[in-house]
Design a protein around this nucleic acid. Structure first.
Lengths: 195, 195
DNA sequence: ACACATATGGACTGATTAGTCCATATATAA
DNA sequence: TTATATATGGACTAATCAGTCCATATGTGT
């Protein structure tokens, strides 16, 4: 079938490692040396397999988005109530306050903040990622309405956008090291809007 | 009094120019060349007058915070109702959707996202800036309670944190180019929590 | 066995980075 | 007028940046 020397690393694992670097350091601050070290491949292999830094970032972002959306979708499906899913998701996130995890934030919102103003492909892909989150929230809201937990006459799209705004704000709050108690209280207020 | 050649530029104006560079490009991506060009001073003068890039950033951030908080404080004082102030502030911000202004975001929240994880002075100063915003919102909430627009038994600090979360989320939404109509609708939902 | 195609390590590039240094300019105090 | 103190322009540095290139390694198909 294929000719030539076979690849000596798992592109999947390498892309995953790159994702974590971009997640922790952001796009600009992640140097190719950082990436190579984490991916445990040579410079040639990176450019051979992924093209360039921007394309590698796109791959990492799509992966992150895919993982996130899939995981949340599965969780939403498994959840006996859609509103319960939303409540748990936000409260669990708020509970990260003070932990090391909270410093990482979310790659999608991190990228929105860093790249939002740029007009390039990375910015466009970031926008799509934010929209994907809103779409997931929209599904949860619509299901909540069907389940009688949210009034059917309420604007599901507005609520979904509101939840995206809320999650983005929550992540910013966590990054700025806000007080855990107040963070939880704010998340509860956020969720009150759904009822 | 003073000896030696006098400064040939306004440190105030120079710092202001630097503030705008950091605002538009972020901390890491703002190169000293960008800064020098915008500040219209020589490299020597920058290091002579401001120390180094980090210190210049701190100066810029403190200026931004000072300007912002002063302006909002004045506006709050002038406003006949504190809740009206909050409503106008959030709705005006939401109205930025689609405009060029929305790409800039807020230097404080931008910095929280970019520097939040670092442990250095810049990160600490960023946290203080976020807290200053929360303090201003707290004042507005307390006044709203005194004015009978928010029930006196509600947790003013939690509401203030919630508003900070809301503004941070709103700015992220704007940066990600969210739909103007949905953004406004989300901001309205945000404000509903106050009533 | 051998030709071929792809992968890889690592040296290299030119650009850019933050920051330093020094000669010179320009003011004030005596 | 002269000594002194600070400001400034601009050359310079060492490090780092993303990306290229080539010799070599290592497979597969014939």
């Amino acid at each position: 079938m294929t000719r030539g020397r076979p690849i000596a690393f798992s592109p999947d694992e390498a892309a995953n490692a790159a994702m974590h670097v971009f997640w922790a350091r952001g796009y600009d601050s992640a140097s190719t040396r950082d990436l190579l070290k984490a991916m445990k491949i040579s410079r040639s292999s990176l450019y051979q397999a992924f093209g360039n830094k921007e394309q590698l970032f796109l791959e990492a972002l799509r992966r992150y988005r895919g993982n996130l959306i899939d995981r949340l979708n599965r969780r939403l499906e498994m959840s006996p109530s859609a509103i319960g899913f939303l409540q748990e998701l936000f409260m669990e996130t708020a509970m990260e306050a003070g932990s090391e995890r909270s410093a990482l934030g979310c790659l999608i919102f991190n990228s929105a903040s860093e790249l939002g103003q740029r007009g390039d492909i990375a910015a466009i892909e970031t926008r799509r990622s934010v929209q994907a989150i809103t779409a997931l929230f929209h599904e949860a809201v619509v299901r909540s309405q069907a389940e009688g937990d949210i009034a059917p006459d309420r604007d599901a799209l507005a609520l979904a956008t509101y939840l995206t705004l809320g999650m983005a704000g929550l992540r910013t709050l966590l990054k700025s090291g806000a007080d855990p108690t107040q963070t939880r209280a704010a998340a509860e207020l956020l969720l009150d809007t759904l009822r």
